[in-house]
Design a binder for these strands. Structure first.
Lengths: 159, 159
DNA sequence: TCCGATTAAATTATGCGCTATTGAAAATGA
DNA sequence: TCATTTTCAATAGCGCATAATTTAATCGGA
């Protein structure tokens, strides 16, 4: 599959690029699923899904965000977030109120229960870091490589 | 968030483990989405979705697989695959026939159109490898690190 | 042979994610 | 001022992902 007659230097041969792109995207795909499966049993105790947890993570770092702000943070749009946030509201973790100044905007804020969950979740979710089986250094390097990859893909897409 | 009084050696401090696990899982989550967005416009030309493409990739490497076999390859179960394979069948890329020997099993095979797509898709999907912006070496290292991570997470889950 | 257990696939229900559309509120501009 | 454009959120429709249930076929032992 990689026997193309392409002898360019300083660049990927076409076949290699194809094979590698496939392997890389599939590896990312698999790991994303694996993370999901790892988090699920832990989050089930709180009645949370993984993306819901990501939204709470964002709010724990910076409370009172608009839907758009959360979307930019996580790379999601309102079509995904609106129903998700309603479920978080129903579950009592966040409140959704229209901004007085600009009534198009919905401000999402943590409730007391949502703030309390941060402390509660800390102890339980800690084991994920250990489940990765990585040393600090490895994990940091991997995270950095993923950020670079993300940036390149975004450039290729959006630009 | 990381100011725990934990001074263990040779292991992650709790706070660091939490922060890193979060950053790592979020980075993977983001890159998976980014890959999806990158592939989508290319696959749209063939009327394929990303997971459908992954199924075809598996079949291009090894034709005539059972649903279970495909599921093991991709980490998906019949709940995901059954409707997906029906759509691929409707689109004319694969055929689904019961095994003569064991009628519980459904053999998924490429049609002529499905085989032809491999050649056709090659040229178009090649640019993904380049979109990663990685050198061969970087990509290979990243893929390897992801495989390790996947293995660790799987061990942590299934054991 | 018959009965129970196991296996394979499909089905159902819930939730995520994207796109496109809608509708309302703001900002812009003649 | 009034009309156009832009922005933000919500909604509907499609497809993926998982768990739980259902149905059917195979295999094993009495």
């Amino acid at each position: 599959m990689t026997d193309e007659n392409d002898t360019r230097k300083d660049d990927l041969k076409d076949g290699e690029a194809l094979a590698l792109g496939q392997q890389l995207c599939f590896a990312v795909y698999s790991v994303a699923h694996a993370f999901n499966r790892t988090y699920k049993p832990l989050l089930d105790r709180f009645g949370l899904t993984y993306p819901q947890y990501l939204v709470l993570l964002a709010l724990w770092q910076h409370d009172n965000m608009t839907v758009k702000g959360i979307g930019e943070e996580l790379g999601l749009d309102s079509g995904t977030l609106s129903p998700l946030l309603k479920r978080l509201e129903t579950a009592g973790f966040v409140s959704r109120t229209r901004d007085k100044g600009d009534e198009r905007q919905v401000i999402v804020a943590l409730t007391e229960k949502g703030v309390a969950l941060k402390t509660e979740a800390f102890g339980i979710l800690m084991e994920i870091g250990k489940a990765t089986g990585c040393s600090m250094k490895e994990a940091a390097a991997l995270r950095s490589a993923l950020h670079d990859l993300n940036r390149h893909l975004d450039e290729h897409n959006g630009a």
